Structure formats: C-alpha cells, structure tokens
Simulated assay, not measured.
Amino acid sequence: MLKRTLLAAALIGFTGVAIADGHGEKPHANPWSNFSLDNTLQSMPAGDATRGQSLHSQMMCNSCHGENGESPSRNYASINGQPAEYTVKMMLDYRDGRRWEDYKQANIMVKLAQALDDQQIADLAAFYAQGSTQAWGYTKPLDQDMHNKVDHLVRKGDFGRMITPCASCHGAKGEGNEIAPALAGQVPEYFVRTMQAYKDGARHNDVNEGMSQFTHDLTDAEIEALAEYYASLNKQ
C-alpha cells in the first residue's frame, strides 16, 4: 500500500495524472501485425539513455525493478539489458490495452504507460538497453536429464510438437533480439507467469500469436525448467 501511495504521488507531481483504484476502462487497440508494429517502431523518436535514467528514478520504476532495472524481488521482471524495441513494444502494449492479462498486477504499469509520451518511452527503453546483468542469484540447479531436455528445446526445439527453438528468436545465450526479449538472468517466477499466461490464453499481445502457439504444448515442468535455465545465464 505504501509503495502504491508513493507511486501515485510521484505520478501526480510528474505528470498531473493520479492512479485511480479499480480496473478502469480497457482501451481498444487493434492487434499487432508485422507491418503495423514495424511502422510504429520506426516512427518512435530516438531514445536518450541519460534522460531515461532520470525517468527511471523520477517515475519510481526502481522501486519494483531495481536501481538499474535488475529486479531485487521475485515478484517483478528484470528489465535491464532488454532490447529497446522490446521495451517500447511492452510500454505501448500496456498503454494501448494490448497487455491487460491481469489488471490487478498490471495496474501500476498500465497507469504509468498511459502517463508517458512516446519520447519518454523511448528514453526509458534506451536506458534499459544499455544495461547488463548477472545471472539471477537464486536459481535451482536442474538435474542432468532435465537440463539436456531443456537445452535441446532452446537450441533445437521439438519438431514433433512444432516448437521452434527458443534461440531462433531470443538468441543462443538468451540475449534477446529486437522485439524478442532477453531471457538471460530473468526472474524465474516472472518467466513462469509469463509463459503460463501465453499458454492459458490470458496474454495475447504477441504478434501472430507466436508465443501462444509455442507454449501450448509445453508441460508445466518444462516451463519451470526453462525458467531456471535462463535465470542461470548472464546477459551479454
């Protein structure tokens, strides 16, 4: 409650917009197509990492995501080292209503995104993109059989289940690429929640439902193992 109060006060002082309690009215944004997303990203202003660092502090992003975007908590995502295009897309998805899978948890992010203009979003994205992080510090070691299975999913996928290799979009070391987020060093609990949201159909801001299709046939054990696998990697 204190964190929400402080965050609301910061928003009032910075933008003149207060965070209201409750669900609010969901914006109606069209789903992304490859064409519309590409055009939108190209039309965004160039980001400034120095301004982004100031915004990170002023908007109290650090209260959840850490001093430099490396989450100190199992409850929130690490966002340092993320490709700028990915961060821009996520903020636009929150702002425009494409990402609305769990409003109770996402309330703050929705209101924050709605309080930012395109330049501020680009600045934050530039700040996070310049960062790097070490592996998440509280990973659970996988047994050899599960490690081999997950490593195969990451590098080779599973042709029988039509699962594309994770590395084909997210990089061989989980470093991310454009709108595909970095997974290395990600908080495992956040990774699991995200994958389950795609799998259950609660989250559908992925272009062409790519992630929804790939997660559909993954078992819960595989998702949890993937979370630990990526959490143990260093972002590059």
Rank of each mutant, 00 (worst) to 15 (best):
E101H: 11
V150S: 00
A126R: 01
K149L: 09
L142C: 11
D117P: 06
A135V: 11
D151I: 04
H152M: 15
T133W: 00
Y94P: 02
D96P: 02
Q130Y: 05
G160W: 09
D143W: 14
G160H: 09
H170D: 10
Y128N: 02
D145K: 15
S168T: 15
P165N: 12
K149P: 02
V110F: 12
W136L: 03
D117G: 10
A115W: 03
D145F: 06
K156S: 14
V110C: 03
A125D: 06
F159T: 08
W100Q: 06
Q130A: 10
L153V: 03
Y94D: 00
A106V: 02
R155Q: 15
G171M: 03
G171A: 04
Q130I: 07
L112R: 01
S168L: 15
Q130E: 10
D118E: 10
D143E: 15
C169Y: 01
I121S: 01
Q105S: 10
A122M: 04
A135R: 11
A113S: 13
K173V: 03
K156M: 07
D96Y: 01
Q120F: 07
Q119W: 06
W100A: 03
D96T: 11
F127P: 01
P165K: 13
A135M: 10
D102E: 09
K104H: 10
D102G: 03
G171E: 01
R99P: 04
L116T: 01
Q120W: 06
M162R: 15
Q119Y: 07
L142H: 12
Q130V: 08
Y138K: 13
D102H: 10
A113R: 00
F159A: 14
Y103G: 02
I108F: 07
I163C: 10
T133C: 05
L142Y: 14
P165A: 12
A125S: 11
G97I: 10
Q105Y: 09
D158Y: 05
D158S: 05
G137W: 01
A122N: 01
A106W: 10
A172C: 07
Q134N: 13
A113C: 08
H152A: 15
Q114V: 06
D158W: 05
W136A: 00
G131P: 00
L153T: 00
G157H: 12
S132M: 07
K156A: 06
G160C: 03
A135Y: 06
G174D: 06
L153P: 03
